[in-house]
Structure formats: structure tokens, C-alpha cells
């Protein structure tokens, strides 16, 4: 049997979950024995080159590009995992999900804020190459079906490791209290 294929991405996140992933330390050597990576910052593959078994999503959904990538992941992966607070609940980026409309948010950021300088033309970035900003930050599972959620900010390396190991081996996941307690 060929090795299961894993893809990962960071949407509206801080890459902290990926950093935590790397905290599995030397076990990464075991991991590459167990799985093959496809689209992921870990191997810098930019687009899917084949169908994957497991997709790991860090970060919530704040713009049109996030939506696009998330849907690509859903299309190309059998199992999708929301990794960390932002993917699961929007996290820190979702602080902008207050009652103020997105227009106010953009105007504050690019026009009105005291730290705004050198924007005499009063431009809110609008190049066609830029992703379009969504009205609010969405958790991944409101856009596509998510199969598993691994909580934490960032989730502990052991939690990520245990989850992947369980998925790959088919054994029940080892879920001791320590790996999901956060303070």
C-alpha cells in the first residue's frame, strides 16, 4: 500500500500552528516514513499535483483566496482537519467580526487611523490581483465540510502527532488530558 498523502495550508492564520507542527521534533523523521507530503509550505509545493488523503487547514477564512484554497482542499482531500483556534472559530482575525461593517474597518485601516501616512490619494487597496476581503472572518466548517477539529492556539505538537498517527494507522487516537489543556 502506498503511503497516505498529506497536504497543509495556512489561511487567515499566523503560521503558529505550522510551527507547532514542527515541534514534533525528531518525530518528523518517523512522519516522512509514514506519509508523503503534497501541497504544503513544508515542501513548498504550491498546487495539488495529486489527490490527497489528509488536508490540514490552519487559519480561518477572511478573503476570497482563502475560500478558493479551502474549496480546493475539500476537492482534493479525503479528510479535512481544522487545526487550531482560527480555523475552528476564526480566532484573532475574527476580532474584526464586531458589529462595525467591513467598510468602517477598511476606512479605519487605510484612511482614518492616526498611523496612516502617505495615502494622500485616499486609496483602499483595490488591485485586481489582491484577494477580496469578506464581510467577516468565517470558521472553515461554515464554508466546507470539516471532518475533524484539533483545538489549541497553537495545538500542541503531541496533539497533531497523535491525530495524524491515529488517522494513518487506524488506531484509536491517544487523547490524554495534557494535550488538550491550554493553560
Amino acid at each position: 500500500m502506498s503511503k497516505p498523502i498529506v497536504a497543509t495550508t495556512s489561511l487567515a492564520g499566523c503560521f503558529g500552528c505550522h510551527m507547532s507542527f514542527l515541534d514534533i521534533d525528531e518525530r518528523i523523521l518517523d512522519l516522512i516514513e509514514l506519509v508523503e507530503f503534497n501541497k504544503s509550505p513544508i515542501d513548498d509545493i504550491k498546487t495539488f499535483t495529486k489527490k490527497c488523503d489528509i488536508g490540514i487547514i490552519e487559519g480561518g477564512v477572511c478573503n476570497s483566496e482563502n475560500v478558493h484554497i479551502l474549496k480546493e482542499f475539500r476537492k482534493n482531500c479525503k479528510i479535512l482537519i481544522s487545526l487550531g483556534e482560527c480555523a475552528i472559530m476564526g480566532g484573532l482575525p475574527a476580532v474584526r467580526n464586531n458589529n462595525a461593517p467591513i467598510s468602517e474597518c477598511l476606512e479605519e485601516a487605510y484612511l482614518n487611523c492616526v498611523s496612516v501616512q502617505a495615502n494622500d490619494e485616499k486609496i483602499i487597496p483595490n488591485d485586481d490581483e489582491l484577494p477580496m476581503i469578506l464581510d467577516k472572518v468565517y470558521p472553515c466548517h461554515e464554508i466546507v465540510k470539516i471532518d475533524y477539529h484539533l483545538p489549541g492556539c497553537a495545538p500542541r505538537a503531541d496533539l497533531i502527532w497523535n491525530a495524524l498517527e491515529a488517522l494513518v494507522t487506524g488506531n484509536e487516537m491517544d487523547l490524554p488530558y495534557e494535550v488538550i489543556k491550554f493553560d
Partner: peptide
């Protein structure tokens, strides 16, 4: 979801 931000950014 993108309507308002696009309008704001013209």
C-alpha cells in the same frame, strides 16, 4: 460576502 468590501475599495 465580498460585496461591501469591494464597494468600499471601489
Amino acid at each position: 460576502a465580498v460585496a461591501e468590501s469591494c464597494k468600499t475599495a471601489n
